[in-house]
Simulated assay, not measured.
Amino acid sequence: MPTPAAERRAREVQERRDRIVAAARTLAEEQGWEAVTTRRLADAIEYSQPVLYGHFPQGRAQIVTAVALVGFEEIAAALAPASRGEELSDDERVRALVTAYLDFAARNPATYDAMFLLPLVVPFAEDDTPEVMKAGFAAIVDTLQRLERLPAEPETTAEMLWGAMHGLASLHRAGRLSAATDDRVEALVRLFAP
């Protein structure tokens, strides 16, 4: 059993790590990932660069991964209500899922980039992928499995829906689509909850 002093030290280490991740995320959301350097992070949290490397020995890539893991946790929480709402019709369920996904991507563009576009130091779509990364996809699968017209292959259908949502989020953010998204959301609803 750890001593109170050891527990306090572990808590302080975790708090410092959380501060680094929060500072990286804030800086990335405000100025883009190019602005996230160990020097700027060290200044933001008022610690030296060696302290950052003590928490994140792989440097920036590990910090990006830590931000992505927080994002995966948040998107899973945002998507979960669509799979849990017992009283929702099929179209309401899919609409809630798509809207939650697109809203998350729009509100957290740098975090979204960390999750899906930047290199991570953890595997993606593998057996040893961290559970937190699997939870958002599981929410998509769960949502589809609650539809009255259950897809023949829920996981493959979930990949297609995820791909469509990711494409819409990415194209909209890149300015390749008009600002109006309601028609696109409704088109997705009709495709996946006819």
Rank of each mutant, 00 (worst) to 15 (best):
S89L: 13
E186C: 01
A66K: 06
E7R: 15
T129G: 04
Q31Y: 12
L171D: 09
G175S: 06
V94R: 03
V64N: 00
E30V: 03
D183C: 00
A187I: 08
A66L: 03
F56T: 05
D113Q: 14
G136M: 02
D183W: 08
R16D: 08
Q49G: 04
A152D: 13
M160G: 07
A42H: 07
R184T: 10
P130G: 06
A179E: 15
E126I: 00
A135T: 06
L188K: 10
T156N: 04
I140D: 04
Q49A: 12
P2C: 01
V98P: 07
T157I: 04
Y112K: 01
M115F: 09
T38R: 04
A42G: 11
W33K: 06
Q58H: 12
A5V: 14
Y53V: 02
T111V: 15
L79N: 07
G175R: 01
S178D: 13
A22V: 03
E186L: 10
V122G: 09
P50N: 08
L171K: 08
S178W: 06
R149N: 05
L177P: 01
Y53F: 15
D182P: 02
V51F: 03
S178L: 12
M115V: 02
A164D: 11
E86L: 09
M133E: 05
L161W: 10
D182S: 14
F137A: 03
T143D: 10
E12T: 09
A96R: 15
R146D: 00
E92I: 05
V13I: 14
A105G: 11
R146I: 03
E30S: 15
V64P: 00
A82T: 01
R146M: 11
A114F: 04
A24M: 03
A22G: 06
D113L: 11
Y53P: 01
T156Q: 12
P194V: 09
P50V: 07
Q14P: 00
L117W: 02
L144S: 01
R95C: 03
T99H: 03
D128L: 02
I20R: 05
D127G: 01
L97M: 11
S170P: 00
G54V: 11
A23K: 02
A77H: 07
Q58N: 08
A110E: 01
T181Q: 15
